[in-house]
């Protein structure tokens, strides 16, 4: 089942074409690595798919909803987490969970069962009433990911979720991604760590607003005759000049 379908999706800012007629599909339960150099158009593409930005032309449905006419329905069906903003640092773990649960219209009972469940799975029960600020970065990121899944979305968008995280926590984070995908939730992830790209079911590489390559890492490496995704990326994503 296709959970994301994009057909010639385009976004222009004045004369500048940020996203240039990209077409791709994502299956339910798939992990899609969305790669590209700074300024290649990744962020704009994600904004269109999450209902934050209306496309200039082209079509796309996310979780069966149209990006032009049903952005509010899309927002209810997706979870979002980014490295820059995820949880409120001055609120406690429990307060953040209650806040996000409330935003997505969960009942008080749902929130409290899911909170207890979440804290147990992350082994964070002892930190329930700690401020986010006092938690190590790795924990925060894992918690933020879980909170993004609180309302049981069908797709979760992760924007550089592991930036700056230590190598062990980074792998624990990927374990969570695998678990999530195994539950049938689609994971749409961006990263600057090229080894993480290898963990994805499929990767797409954006260059100057276009998708230059999309497919399974192994297949792409074979067809471009390179040893690693890193090499592939460097070959495709020639420096975008300023």
């Amino acid at each position: 089942m296709k959970i994301i379908e994009a057909q010639r999706l385009t976004r222009k800012f004045g004369d500048f074409v940020a996203v240039d007629a990209i077409s791709f599909n994502v299956e339910a339960g798939e992990i899609l690595g969305f790669l590209g150099a700074n300024g290649a158009g990744k962020t704009t593409a994600i904004k269109m798919l999450t209902g934050l930005l209306s496309p200039t032309s082209g079509d796309a449905t996310v979780a069966g909803f149209d990006v032009y006419s049903q952005p509010e329905k899309i927002k209810k069906s997706i979870g979002y987490m980014s490295q820059r903003f995820s949880l409120y640092e001055d609120l406690t773990v429990a307060e953040n969970i209650r806040f996000y649960g409330g935003i997505y219209g969960l009942s008080a009972r749902q929130i409290s069962t899911r909170r207890d469940d979440l804290l147990e799975r992350l082994d964070l029960g002892h930190a329930r009433d700690d401020r986010i600020r006092s938690l190590p970065l790795g924990w925060r990121q894992k918690l933020a990911f879980s909170v993004a899944l609180l309302h049981e979305p069908r797709i979760v968008f992760l924007d550089e979720p592991t930036g700056g995280v230590d190598p062990i926590t980074r792998r624990q984070f990927w374990d969570m991604i695998y678990e999530t995908a195994a539950r049938g939730i689609t994971v749409f992830v961006t990263t600057h760590y090229m080894d993480e790209a290898e963990y994805c079911d499929r990767i797409s590489i954006m260059v100057d607003g276009r998708i230059e390559a999309i497919g399974q890492p192994a297949d792409l490496k074979k067809s471009f005759d390179v040893a690693s995704v890193d090499e592939l990326f460097v070959r495709l994503a020639r420096p975008v000049q300023a």
């Binding site: 290649a40 600057h192 890193d230 460097v234 994503a237 020639r238 420096p239």
Partner: peptide, 30 residues
């Protein structure tokens, strides 16, 4: 940090050239 893989590579090339100019370089990275 936060710079794509291509720019990172170019940056390290520059550091290696500076090193050969005799400058001591301390760099941190995740």
């Amino acid at each position: 940090t936060g710079v794509d893989a291509v720019s990172r590579r170019e940056f390290w090339d520059m550091l290696l050239r500076l090193k050969s100019a005799g400058i001591s370089i301390l760099v941190s990275t995740p």
